[in-house]
Amino acid sequence: MTEQVLDRVSGYERWFNTLFEEYFDTLSVGLGAPSFSRFTPECLRLLRELSLRGGKRMRVVLLHEAARLVTEEPVEGLEAAALSVELLQTHGLVHDDLIDDSPTRRGGPSTYYAYRERFPARPQAALGLTVLAGDLALALSLRVLLEAKVPVAVRQAMIEVQTRAAADTFVGQIVDLERDFAAAPGEEVLHCVADYKSARYSVLAPLQLGLLAAGEQPALFEKELREYARLVGICGQMRDDYLDLFGDASVMGKPTGTDIRDGKHSYTVSVLLAAVDDAERRVVEAALGDPSCLTETIAAVREIGERRGVPGRMQADMRRCAEQATEVAAGWRSRWREEAVTFFEHLPLWSVNRTR
């Protein structure tokens, strides 16, 4: 991406981080919780800390760039839409960490582990409060749209987009867990999980919300928007899975091998198991699903993958997917602003080349 685009992306991030902080500053007043409750303010504090603690804000970037497809003028409704997509993301992080039993998130304790530390003798209460914290973030993501200062028809359409995105994400979480019960899920299963669990709320919904805010009717272009989002989502998930084994832990700020230890049948694991011989398979399968798997064992699995050409195969798959997404976006030139279309053409390859 050009320096101009990168500056614009950085501007969205700064703008939104300020907006998000201001939102949480006023949230406790607007929530209307009983005055005696101590748990409600604590829940809001945990949601605030998680929400403001990092994140690339790419959903916010997509939202704004989608509006720029239609117009370069300021667009009403983007603030509410941005808050909505990031609150839905917060919901997903809270529940993901509960499902995965993850102690940390974005350099701090996960909401689940914060509650576990708060209530060491009440594990069921810690679990319940974590679920409710995630549910509250979801409800808030819809409420900000209900309060958006946009025409009623636009507001209703935005709520429909986010409600559908949330439901698709829940289905994605279910089939993600189901995938790991299969001995060898096929590529289409992996693509379907990436689409439902990630692409629909992280790419498609911001695209639709940005277009709606700018006065466009995304339903008229449903098929191509869905295809673009699906391909970008698959690229992103492939890259996440690739970095989990072949990435640089010092750059990513987290250890590699998490998917192996968790027993996840990721894109990387799928390609790896298809490439190894019997002796190597025994090494990989012994590590797969072993939470106490040593760093040395992960390094051995990585070395097997490198010897078998797994990184090159995955990079080729990612690039092919990215090129297909770029081709879809190129078809928008006759309809929308060329500068904004160029951003969406470049985005898939950026996703493939990122290092964290």
Score class of each variant (00 low, 15 high):
62 L>S: 02
297 T>D: 13
100 D>C: 05
73 E>T: 14
262 D>E: 15
29 V>D: 14
306 E>Q: 10
61 V>D: 00
326 T>C: 13
332 W>K: 12
4 Q>E: 10
105 R>E: 10
303 E>C: 11
291 P>Y: 10
132 L>G: 02
154 V>C: 08
272 L>F: 01
77 G>I: 12
262 D>F: 01
227 E>S: 11
105 R>L: 13
348 P>K: 00
48 R>D: 06
57 R>K: 13
19 L>N: 02
192 C>N: 13
50 L>E: 09
217 Q>Y: 05
34 P>H: 00
234 I>A: 09
86 E>K: 06
225 L>K: 11
93 L>Q: 04
213 A>M: 07
168 D>P: 03
2 T>L: 07
164 R>E: 15
4 Q>M: 03
327 E>I: 00
57 R>Y: 03
305 G>S: 09
207 L>C: 06
222 E>C: 06
135 D>F: 01
101 D>H: 11
78 L>R: 06
18 T>E: 15
87 L>V: 13
284 V>F: 04
206 P>S: 03
145 L>H: 07
133 A>F: 08
85 V>Q: 00
317 D>E: 15
111 T>R: 11
199 A>D: 03
278 D>G: 03
314 M>P: 00
273 L>S: 04
186 G>P: 02
2 T>Y: 01
310 V>E: 02
279 A>W: 04
45 R>M: 07
197 K>A: 03
240 D>H: 06
26 T>Q: 11
211 L>Y: 13
95 H>Q: 12
37 S>T: 09
321 C>Y: 04
